[in-house]
């Protein structure tokens, strides 16, 4: 698959912009830390955004870096969310243990479904990803005694983090906790995509036939990416359960799989920071448009998708890149 939308990121940045590229993200991380202090009213929303960024980042590893287009990524988010929620009600409500379990279960679900699905590609893979998520959704819907069915898992509460920090009603603990998780996940993903393994994923995205011909075990490589992505999606799901004290059936739905894909594309897939740009934009647009009539929001998302695919491949970050490049070219002449 050739994908010109991802072309830009693979070219080395021009000298002189490297500084800005490093400093700006650092500033953003620091600014995020200050949200509970300076905008306490927005802390719960900010936590939501952080969790979704983590979810979208996990998807970026598949869609952006490996070229695996899935319509069922919510299955892994939901697996993590339900694991954390069910464990809290029945076994232990320690946040770290349940979060790690959520990751582990999601990774396992990813390993099992992925080891089947990744044997196919194209339409078959798309339909399998749909069908796998659909099955999990139906199972959760039916097993009411365990999952609460359509009503979701309610009244899930968690013990203080590390035995010290209570999940307070203003959501400060929840925010710092999820931000810390996101930061750790980001460092991990950045490591991975810059490793020889990560490069080989790009190779598979660009030309899987050629990768096979240089001796790359494509199936296992893609499966490894799928499992890593699943674990991170599961972590996002577990965090969602912990900070909202609720697990909705929606966390396994096609709608969520679609939403997270749109968020990622809006920011720009295969760029590492695409999720960080796309998710807030998506959530603000949703807040703005869905208030009066859900139809407005559907229309908004639809228009975003059409504009993105027809005119702005590469998302907002791709657009920024292109504008800056044409400015740079103009400036040099």
């Amino acid at each position: 698959m050739t994908d010109r939308s991802n072309a830009a990121v693979l070219v080395l940045p021009q000298a002189g912009t490297v500084g800005a590229r490093k400093i700006l993200p650092m500033l953003l991380w620091v600014a995020a830390l200050a949200i509970p202090t300076f905008a306490p009213g927005y802390t719960p929303l900010a936590s939501q955004i952080v969790v979704m960024i983590l979810f979208a980042l996990s998807l970026d590893l598949l869609v952006g870096f490996t070229g695996i287009v899935t319509l069922g990524h919510a299955a892994l988010f939901g697996a993590g969310a339900y694991t954390a929620g069910i464990m809290a009600l029945r076994l232990t409500n320690d946040p770290l243990i349940t979060a790690l379990s959520g990751m582990a279960v999601a990774a396992l679900v990813g390993l099992v479904t992925g080891s089947c699905m990744l044997r196919t590609k194209g339409l078959a893979f798309l339909v399998l990803s749909l069908a796998a998520a659909f099955m999990l959704h139906e199972l959760a819907n039916m097993a009411t005694s365990v999952t609460g069915g359509d009503d979701g898992l309610q009244g899930v509460s968690f013990a203080p983090l590390l035995g010290v920090f209570e999940f307070d009603f203003r959501g400060q603990t929840a925010f710092y906790y999820s931000l810390a998780c996101l930061f750790a996940a980001f460092l991990l993903v950045r490591r991975v995509v810059n490793s020889p393994f990560g490069w080989s994923l790009r190779g598979i995205r660009e030309n899987d036939g050629r990768m096979r011909a240089i001796g790359c075990p494509i199936y296992r490589r893609r499966l490894a990416a799928y499992v890593i992505s699943s674990a991170l999606a599961g972590l996002a799901g577990a965090l969602q359960a912990q900070i909202t004290q609720f697990v909705a059936l929606r966390s396994l739905s096609l709608e969520l799989s679609g939403d997270v894909l749109i968020m990622l594309i809006l920011g720009g897939a295969g760029r590492l920071y695409g999720a960080f740009v796309g998710v807030p934009l998506f959530m603000f647009a949703q807040d703005l448009l869905a208030k009066e009539d859900p139809a407005n929001w559907y229309l908004g998302q639809g228009v975003i998708l059409l504009v993105m695919t027809l005119f702005v491949p590469g998302g907002v970050l791709g657009l920024v890149e292109r504008v800056r490049r044409s400015l740079g070219r103009g400036g040099r002449r």
């Binding site: 080989s200 001796g215 490589r221």
Partner: peptide, 23 residues
């Protein structure tokens, strides 16, 4: 049959990495 968006160096590196078992 190459990796069109990757640099020439990366194209060759991918093969070296696979061959030397560091991929």
């Amino acid at each position: 049959s190459l990796f069109p968006n990757l640099s020439v160096r990366k194209n060759v590196f991918l093969a070296v990495a696979e061959h030397e078992g560091v991929a």
